[in-house]
């Protein structure tokens, strides 16, 4: 549904450590405004707003007006895909870590 340009935008957006932090915070809080985010970061509200613009441009967050401010939230992935992902990735790590444990147990024996 979308071309490589979107992916480039996403990675461009994520290339900045402050933006990764901002994205993580929005996810953790379930939504946040630029003012709230700036309160916990060593950058200005204006700088945070600019980062939010880049994240929104990449489709990683969307903003809704809430009074005088815009509240951002992480764009939700379809729930079914999220569950599929968790199930698949979880099963992979279960297998890998079981192998790792066997390996270190055997080395010790």
């Amino acid at each position: 549904m979308s071309g490589g340009g979107d992916v480039d935008a996403v990675f461009g957006a994520l290339a900045d450590p402050t933006r990764r932090h901002v994205l993580g915070e929005i996810g953790r809080r379930g939504g946040a405004t630029a003012t709230e985010l700036a309160a916990d970061l060593p950058v200005t509200r204006q700088a945070v707003a600019k980062h939010l613009g880049v994240l929104a441009g990449a489709g990683l967050v969307d903003g809704r007006r809430a009074g005088r401010e815009t509240r951002y939230r992480v764009t939700p992935a379809p729930m079914g895909e999220a569950i599929d992902w968790m199930t698949r990735v979880g099963a992979q790590w279960d297998e890998r870590l079981a192998r790792l444990q066997r390996l270190t147990t055997r080395d010790r024996a």
């Binding site: 992916v7 990675f11 992935a77």
Partner: peptide, 25 residues
């Protein structure tokens, strides 16, 4: 990110393009 659901035509192209971006990160 939630773009996990996006289709990625030309994925291998994208992969080549992504590495330098991430290296800087």
């Amino acid at each position: 990110g939630p773009w996990a659901s996006h289709g990625r035509p030309g994925g291998s192209h994208a992969r080549r393009e992504l590495a330098p971006v991430l290296v800087r990160a």
